[in-house]
Structure formats: structure tokens, C-alpha cells
Amino acid sequence: MSLVAVLLLCHLAAASLTITIPATNLLPNPHGLPASTHATLTTLPSGNDHLLTASLTHASTLVFHDIPAQQESYLLDIRSSEYIFAPYRVDVAADGSVLGIWETFRGNPWDNRGAEKYVVDAAAKKQSDVVVEAKLVGRRGFFEERAKFSPLSLVKNPMILLAIVALGFTLGMPKLMESMDPEMRAEFEEHSRSSPLTGGASNALAGGGFDLAGWMAGTSPNPMANADAAPAGVTGRDTGAATRRR
């Protein structure tokens, strides 16, 4: 009878660790976590390796019951197929009570502790049930999101901007000319006629430049015929002059 009482007292004195999953912006509803979500407590590689597992409950908590009464340091991992949680370091005393919980960092020395989550108070009575909150780091992304079409992307194109500016000048210049007073319009036309570019174009048109449309229609002479006739005439005159010299 005394042995049963001792076992019962040991069971009642065994500490438990509860991890709650709070609601965040990344996870508004913790109850939507996959059913395969679970947590593990793993010891450092040594002769007495321990691996404890806790499954997700209906209350969105992970509970470790009956932590072994042995002074040990554990790595707490929360494993989920859709979300990433920060790992914790859990130190346990020889009687199985939790001494402290801190954030830890993978790839760094084990003594490099992060933010403190729980530390036992030496003056107060040890708690048999320790409750801490999990820290959600991010969500796993297995697929790259396709870029969405936005009308603003057209405005960012330099060619589209040039076309818009050219269209604005084409439609705006006639309106601007109509709104000008007669004196300003006369001055503008005078400057346009005196411009080298505009004057050269006017002289080319007035001087009877090559008429492509007329030549293609057959009403204008071929300019190459005049070019071929000129060297022939020059050659004849040169030949006649040479004959007279003889």
C-alpha cells in the first residue's frame, strides 16, 4: 500500500509543460492548424537521449505530461506543415520541474540564449504545470505567387509615356494655336518661316523636289534619266573639244 502511495505522489509531483498557440496576423485562427502539428522535446546528443512528443489538442495547445525526473536540457520544436515556429530551450531540474525556458537559435552555441519565456522563482513554490506561448515566425511558401496585372504598370513603360506625350502635343497644339491672339500667332508664324528646318523644307517643296507619288503614278519624269543624260553630254563636249584641239 505504501508503494502505491509513493507512486501516486510521484505522479502528482511530475511536472507538465503546456505550449499555447496565440492568434496572430499570420495565424488569425489557431484552430485552423493541420492535425499533424506536434511538438518534440529532444535532448542534446549524449548517452541518455530522450525524445518526448506532444500532439495538438482541440484547444490549440501542446501538452507534455510526466517530464522525466532528471536534470536535462531539451530543445523544444513545434513542427507544422504550413507554419514555422521559433525553437525553445527548456531546462529541467532533477525532480522533473521546469527551471527555465528561453528562445534559442539554430547553428549557434547552446549557451547563447534568446528572449526569456519562463524562469522559476527560487523564493516562490515551484509550479507543477508551466504554460508558455509559442512564437510564430512565418508561413511556409511552396509556390511562387504569379504577378498580377495592374494598369499602373503601363504608365511605368517609357514607350507608353512617349506615346502619351506625343499624342498630347498632337491634340493640344491646334487648341493652343486657336487660343493665341493674332499678334502672337503672326510672330509664331514668322519665327517658323525663319527657322532653318522649316525654311529648308519649304524651299525643297517650292523648288520642285522629287515627287515620289507622281513618279509612281507615271506623271512625273524619272530623275535617274536626267542624271544619266548629264554625264553623256559632258563626255560629248569633252570629246568635241579634244577633236578641235587636234
Rank of each mutant, 00 (worst) to 15 (best):
L12K: 11
A14L: 08
A15H: 14
A15I: 04
T18P: 01
T18I: 11
I19R: 02
I21D: 01
I21E: 00
T24W: 07
L27N: 06
L27P: 08
L27E: 08
P28I: 00
P28D: 02
N29W: 04
G32T: 12
L33C: 05
P34R: 01
A35P: 00
A35I: 07
A35K: 03
T37H: 01
T37E: 00
T40I: 11
T42N: 13
T42W: 03
T43I: 08
S46M: 13
S46Y: 11
N48F: 15
L51S: 14
S55K: 07
T57F: 01
S60K: 01
T61C: 05
T61N: 04
L62R: 07
V63K: 09
F64M: 03
P68L: 08
Q71Y: 02
E72Q: 12
S73N: 10
S73H: 06
S73E: 12
Y74D: 02
Y74N: 03
Y74W: 09
L76E: 01
L76A: 01
D77R: 10
Y83E: 00
Y83K: 02
P87F: 06
R89Q: 15
D91E: 15
V92C: 03
G96Q: 12
G96M: 04
S97Q: 09
L99M: 10
I101E: 10
W102T: 12
E103W: 02
T104E: 05
T104K: 05
G107M: 03
N108L: 15
P109N: 11
R113G: 00
A115N: 13
A115C: 06
A115S: 06
E116H: 01
